[in-house]
Simulated assay, not measured.
Amino acid sequence: MKQSYVYILKCSDNSYYTGITSNLTKRIEEHKTGKHNNSYTYTRRPLSLVYYAEFTDINLAIQTEKQIKKWSRVKKEALISGDFEKLPNLAKKNFDK
């Protein structure tokens, strides 16, 4: 079975980028070298890989990537730091600001 990866990069502006790939090493290198000059990460380099998860089911990987992209910064940081018990109680977005 082919592996897929969902990953989170921390950008130089402290934002997070969530992506999906079948070749994590190659894709991270593309982000770091700025291969795609119209991408979100291009002007936010340098970047660091702060989280990744492996999947054998591409559909589950796609679903997970879409889910994480909707999460608040706080919820993403809980995932990154491994505070899994906090995830269910963190709101998707804070609309009170």
Rank of each mutant, 00 (worst) to 15 (best):
Y7E: 01
I8P: 01
I8S: 04
L9W: 05
K10N: 08
C11V: 02
C11N: 10
C11Q: 08
N14E: 14
N14W: 13
S15G: 02
Y16H: 13
Y16F: 15
Y17S: 06
T18I: 15
T18N: 02
G19V: 02
I20R: 05
I20F: 03
T21C: 11
T21P: 05
S22D: 13
S22P: 01
N23D: 13
N23R: 12
L24P: 04
T25M: 11
K26T: 12
K26M: 11
K26Q: 14
R27I: 00
I28H: 05
E29P: 00
E30C: 07
E30Q: 15
H31E: 01
H31G: 02
K32V: 01
K32P: 00
T33S: 14
G34N: 04
K35S: 05
K35N: 04
H36Q: 08
H36W: 11
H36C: 03
N37H: 12
N38F: 09
S39H: 07
S39K: 03
Y40N: 00
Y40R: 01
T41L: 02
T41W: 03
T43P: 01
R44A: 02
R44E: 01
R45K: 10
R45M: 04
P46M: 02
L47S: 08
S48D: 10
L49I: 02
V50N: 07
A53F: 09
E54W: 07
F55D: 00
T56A: 11
I58V: 15
I58K: 15
N59T: 05
N59Q: 12
A61S: 13
I62Y: 12
T64A: 13
I68G: 03
I68V: 11
K69L: 12
K70G: 12
W71Y: 14
W71S: 06
S72T: 04
S72R: 08
R73P: 05
V74D: 12
V74W: 07
K75L: 07
K76C: 15
E77P: 04
A78G: 05
A78M: 06
A78K: 05
A78H: 05
L79Q: 08
I80F: 12
I80E: 10
S81Q: 13
D83R: 15
D83H: 15
E85G: 06
K86E: 11
L87W: 09
L87D: 06
P88I: 07
P88M: 10
N89C: 06
L90W: 04
A91G: 10
K92R: 13
K92W: 14
K93W: 09
N94Q: 14
N94S: 14
D96P: 00
D96I: 11
D96H: 13
K97D: 11
